[in-house]
């Protein structure tokens, strides 16, 4: 556990709390994307590149796309 992993973990904890507490829905989705990307970096740091690829493709890509499409459908985005 070196300093970089602890920094990534701190960003993940802050992102999780911020995604739950923010009022802006699009901002919450983007913070969730940052959380997922930090998770992918942490998988790579822990010598699991297979999980890192899957997390970056599914967690930061597909899930965020589906969240944003849903926001556009329910008109939750503020101009």
């Amino acid at each position: 556990m070196d300093v970089f992993n602890i920094m990534v973990l701190a960003i993940m904890i802050a992102g999780a709390v911020a995604a739950a507490r923010t009022k802006n829905l699009l901002g919450a989705v983007i913070i969730f994307m940052v959380y997922s990307l930090m998770m992918a970096i942490l998988w790579q740091r822990m010598n699991a590149p297979d999980l890192a690829i899957t997390e970056a493709a599914v967690g930061a890509g597909i899930t965020s796309i589906l969240f944003i499409v849903t926001l556009r459908k329910i008109k939750g985005m503020k101009k």
């Binding site: 590149p49 297979d50 890192a52 690829i53 899957t54 493709a57 599914v58 890509g61 597909i62 796309i65 499409v69």
Partner: peptide, 21 residues
Amino acid sequence: SPGGGFAGGSILGASMILYRF
């Protein structure tokens, strides 16, 4: 190498979704 059916398939699916949008 790292990867496999699920990871590569999700990347391909993301590219198709990008084309659609």
